[in-house]
């Protein structure tokens, strides 16, 4: 038995080394179709995660911290909040679900020391496994061993492989090159925001009926976010940024999600219901363009006093 345990331990160490070496060789040399569990295409892709998370590493103390999916980094413009007297940073990332939000919050909360945290909820993602968003973050953000916690939470072999691959690439000083702040359509704005002036071309034909679902992991993560902020006495708001009205109308159970979010006691606001949004304010069926963001962010600034959020920021300043 002793021999079995000893050899098992030795083999585990040995196999880990061979695994990592194989991963690095295949990851570097093999064509995409030969490495299905080391997904490609996330490096410096749209969303500017690479630039955002590097900027986040050198930023401190902001009044407001925005988190969420592309709806967050395309929906909350730090320049507008700056004009109103509040500094802010947008930590949104593509397809970010509450699971990643909780991890990012824990990682960056002490750096930013925000006085208000806004989590943008895109209900489609509440039933997601969170793999896509994790791959985006692990490929682009400056990761370290602490990211293992996120890998374990998501628990997917593609995430583990990407984690190991990115980590060792970093150790081998093979960082990806600086990302351009303009990709032909979108512009990265300091503070994590992505600006676009594109206007949706209508009619938009690919809208299908949609039923939102919330899975247990995501709900647990939402509760975790709330706990984390409650312990630190940081006010927390959940907003649902507007989507194209035609798309919103296709969702069959918005009330269900609204009541779940309201149940979290976070002064939840579904902005789809708040204003009649014109189609010209959207870049696509899901995201506002800059004209829309101007309207949306002013709405928020008008509503925040009613939620005592701005008072809280001012009182802590």
């Amino acid at each position: 038995m002793k021999k079995f345990l000893l050899n098992s331990t030795l083999f585990s160490c040995f196999a880990s080394i061979i695994y990592i070496a194989s991963l690095l060789i295949v990851g570097k040399l093999a064509p995409t179709y030969l490495k299905p569990n080391l997904p490609a295409g996330f490096e410096r892709r749209n969303g500017f995660s690479y630039t955002r998370y590097r900027e986040a590493e050198s930023t401190t103390q902001k009044d407001v911290l925005f988190l969420g999916s592309s709806h967050a980094y395309r929906g909350y413009d730090p320049r507008i909040f700056e004009k109103a007297g509040f500094s802010s940073f947008n930590l949104g990332s593509s397809s970010q679900t509450p699971v990643q939000t909780l991890f990012l919050l824990r990682k960056y909360i002490d750096r930013f020391q925000p006085k208000l945290v806004v989590l943008d909820i895109y209900p489609v993602l509440l039933n997601s496994d969170g793999v896509e968003s994790t791959l985006d973050l692990m490929t682009n953000a400056p990761i370290d061993f602490s990211w293992m916690r996120l890998a374990l939470t998501v628990n997917d072999i593609r995430v583990y492989n990407t984690f190991v691959f990115s980590l060792f690439k970093k150790l081998l000083s093979e960082e990806i090159q600086e990302q351009s702040r303009y990709d032909g359509v979108d512009t990265y704005v300091e503070g994590g925001y992505v600006e676009t002036f594109k206007v949706i071309t209508l009619p938009y034909n690919s809208l299908k009926a949609n039923k939102y679902q919330l899975n247990e992991n995501q709900y647990e993560a939402l509760l975790g976010i709330k706990r984390e902020l409650t312990v630190r006495s940081i006010p927390f708001r959940i907003f649902q940024a507007p989507v194209l009205p035609g798309r919103y109308a296709k969702a069959t159970n918005v009330e269900h999600i609204d009541s779940l979010m309201a149940g979290l006691d976070t002064n939840y606001i579904n902005f789809n219901k708040h204003v009649l949004w014109s189609d010209s304010l959207f870049a696509d069926d899901s995201h506002l363009n800059q004209y829309g963001v101007d309207v949306y962010n002013k709405q928020i600034l008008q509503l925040l006093p009613a939620h005592n959020a701005i008072d809280n920021i001012i009182s802590k300043k």
Binding site: F14, I18, L23
Partner: peptide, 18 residues
Amino acid sequence: RWVLYALCLFIVGMYMHT
């Protein structure tokens, strides 16, 4: 032999259907 088994594990990790 151990390299062989370790490569088998790598095949599982790289090609298992997700």
